[in-house]
């Protein structure tokens, strides 16, 4: 008996009663050809908590008929196999029709699928008071962080180009912070649980990414649900927008398409819309860059370019979101007026 590497893969596949004919390394997955077809074998380090999550989330996803690809059960009924060093799971193989490099197209699909996931698992959420309070605390903490960075740079006799950029942007940024703080502090004081218009909960994917979406022709499937959990989904929507903002080129990001893709699948109520806007209002990604700057692991030029890109991207995202929301409100008003006229 030899513990060869190919035996390890065969041993994993044996648990699915599959015998590999050919194997191909495709990034983080292994494409496997067997007499029963093609499969994707994923190998990764997973904590016990993530494995437990897989067992609790995938049956729920299957029962909700969400277009998601999850692990296939082994012949022993396991969704995840392997040992503590590496876990494996097997999925059907998809011949992707949108390349991984076409991020714009992948984000468009991802916004739509995220909307579908949130819409289909949505339920009324209690504890919105806590949601606003924690949003307020988060913004307040980050506001202080920004101020501390400013204090530090003010003590520099010759501020660096990056620090000068932050200083000149600070007036605008702190204004946005205060606006968001005002909104969250006001909402945190109201007990919204009795209101119809309040943020709702839904199943959140936890790791939305254009690479966690499989696209084959007209079919699109979400995958990698091991961090999924139920939460106020608007936080995940905001995180997805911030991610797209920092990944896609600022001037060409098709925000109206992305927002339409999400909102058409998951119409937001007023409370969620306002939460989203104010949660995105303060430039979180720039703060992240300022945190990184303290470590100075890259060149000054890199930080200044990144700052320009992120600040431009953030400004455009907010403007586009505002335009989109106003347009939606106008459309809503128009249809309400029409309805009233009809009733008269």
């Amino acid at each position: 008996m030899e513990d060869r590497e190919d035996f390890q893969i065969q041993r994993i596949l044996f648990q699915y009663d599959l015998v590999p004919r050919r194997l191909w390394n495709r990034g983080s997955v292994l494409k496997v050809e067997t007499s029963a077809g093609f499969f994707a074998l994923k190998r990764k380090k997973m904590t016990d908590r993530q494995v437990d999550r897989v067992y609790s989330v995938y049956p729920l996803i299957r029962s909700l008929v969400i277009d998601a690809v999850g692990p296939l059960p082994s012949k022993y009924g396991d969704l995840v196999v392997g040992d503590e060093a590496y876990r494996y799971y097997l999925m059907p193989w998809f011949e992707e029709t949108v390349p991984e490099s076409d991020l714009e197209a992948r984000y468009r699909h991802l916004f739509h699928k995220a909307g579908e996931l949130h819409r289909q698992t949505m339920r009324e959420g209690k504890g919105t008071d806590g949601l606003y309070r924690s949003a307020f605390q988060m913004v307040a903490t980050r506001y202080t962080d920004w101020e501390q960075f400013l204090n530090m740079t003010e003590h520099h006799l010759y501020p660096s180009p990056f620090e000068q950029m932050v200083m000149s942007y600070s007036g605008q940024a702190l204004g946005l912070f205060q606006h968001a703080l005002g909104y969250f502090s006001e909402r945190a004081g109201l007990n919204d649980d009795a209101s119809d218009d309040r943020p709702r909960r839904a199943l959140c994917h936890g790791r939305l990414s254009p690479l966690h979406l499989l696209i084959e022709g007209e079919k699109r499937y979400l995958t990698n649900f091991e961090e999924a959990r139920e939460d106020f989904f608007i936080i995940e929507t905001a995180a997805l927008m911030e991610q797209a903002c920092s990944v896609l080129p600022p001037a060409q990001t098709p925000w109206q398409d992305l927002l339409s893709a999400y909102f058409s699948a998951c119409p937001l109520n007023e409370a969620e819309t306002n939460f989203l806007f104010h949660f995105l209002l303060w430039p979180r990604t720039i703060l992240g860059l300022m945190d990184q700057y303290r470590d100075k692991e890259r060149s000054e030029l890199w930080y200044t370019r990144r700052f320009q890109r992120l600040s431009r991207g953030h400004r455009r995202m907010i403007n586009q979101l505002q335009t989109f929301i106003e347009q939606k409100r106008k459309e809503k008003q128009k249809s309400r007026d029409k309805e009233e006229k009809k009733n008269e």
Partner: peptide, 19 residues
């Protein structure tokens, strides 16, 4: 005992997931 470097004669899951 599953998940180690060796196999155990585990029960197959049925179509409904029972062992």
């Amino acid at each position: 005992l599953s998940g180690g470097r060796f196999f155990v004669d585990r029960m197959y899951a049925t179509q409904s997931g029972r062992l």
